[in-house]
Design a binder for these strands. Structure first.
Lengths: 221, 221
DNA sequence: TCTTTTTTTCACATAAATATCACAATATTT
DNA sequence: AAATATTGTGATATTTATGTGAAAAAAAGA
């Protein structure tokens, strides 16, 4: 698995690189957009970590250029945490978003999620764990071969969790991904949906873990 | 299963090839239409992935030439995403269409869909469940050996459902597949047709399940 | 053309899903 | 232990989606 880190700050590149290499990723670095494009043209990069604030060719432009060449999963880093940027980033079709300062572990978790997602999950049309079966094509969930009914939102959330296993997801992220950028309601709405989803999952309710101070996480074990 | 990839860009061919081979497809490549035709004449190709923009013999012409030789399911790739091309592609009787940039996963999914479709559909010309008989050739439906009359649309919908059992189908998908890309009417028209189809199916009305927040699904049991 | 059939749209009733809030329970910090 | 912050949860008002009948529009047949 090859990761390309695009950031003008060497320090940040090094930190990410260090962590990524522990996880056996092959790391490529680019200190600006132009170099990034060059690397992408000559290598089969699997996932890109892209800083939005850069001299020469900024993140947005770089992203657009990259898209013209190949469609590679991209995680955007941004120092500016304003809502607008967040939305804009998503609108571009970016795979994930992380606001600085972020923990390297969180970034790695997201890289893993994105590569995993792009490796199999989208090809798989079923998720199976013990007696829990989630059929994405048929839009059904079974426990002990019994179909359980989920509301549309609950099903979407479960699907999102399964495609982002082991990644701690904030309520905001969930709202953005499931509800969409045009939802301006309460954070805590998420909690209620989690409650209902957990109840529906019965014995599997503990697959959804609470990440205090942030949100939730789907994890097996 | 043999896939032929017709594209002048080696990069794209390689990406597709890589993914297709993971899925155990035997991959053939052609960098232009002339070579494609040669390959088709000498091999039993099951599905073709065809780029519309190519030097020498462009995609459209290639497609026409291929059709003269054999009828092979074809998925069209197009860099131009304008609506016109889309329509034109469909008009030619193409099996599917994908605008660049596309994700390899998406393409593979479509290849699978096309091959699956062409594997079973042409085998069965009848569907029987209990006392429900649907004769695709004779265009008739019988319940308890009594012929029931369906309107053309209702029959098409039923046929589509039977050929996509256990798949949750959105109203939009249904509109695209049954009505065609050029239908710009109301979503809810589907509901009315489902209503009528269910009524016609009498005791079998429950085979058509409602998938809340999405659409409908045909499922036995 | 007129008639009949099919299709589409619309409105309304009903059912289901959702968002919000208040308070309880549980962590976390002081 | 108390104070504080955060999450869990039940109740409920609100919103949304679906089923359906009726009527308008379109298409097909005579």
């Amino acid at each position: 698995m090859k990761v390309l880190i695009v950031d003008d700050e060497e320090l940040i590149r090094n930190v990410i690189k260090e962590y990524a290499e522990i996880e056996k990723y092959e790391v490529y670095e680019a200190e600006n957009g132009l170099k990034a494009i060059e690397i992408i043209e000559n290598n089969d990069i699997d996932v890109i970590v892209l800083d939005i604030m850069m001299p020469k060719l900024d993140g947005y432009s770089t992203y657009r250029e990259i898209k013209k060449i190949k469609k590679i999963p991209t995680i955007i880093l941004s120092a500016r945490s304003e809502e607008y940027d967040k939305l804009f980033g998503f609108e571009l079709g970016v795979d994930d978003y992380l606001a600085k300062p972020f923990s390297p572990k969180e970034l790695i978790a997201r890289i893993k999620a994105v590569t995993r997602r792009n490796q199999k999950d989208e090809l798989e049309d079923k998720f199976v764990y013990k007696t829990l079966e989630v059929d994405f094509v048929g839009h059904t969930v079974k426990i002990d071969n019994e179909e359980i009914t989920l509301t549309p939102k609950a099903f979407e959330i479960l699907t999102y969790f399964i495609q982002n296993q082991k990644v701690a997801i904030s309520r905001d992220t969930l709202l953005n991904k499931i509800w969409g950028y045009d939802f301006f309601g309460d954070d805590r709405t998420v909690d209620t949906h989690i409650k209902m989803l957990r109840n529906s999952l019965g014995e599997y309710r503990d697959l959804i873990k609470t990440v205090r101070g942030l949100g939730y996480k789907f994890e097996i074990k």
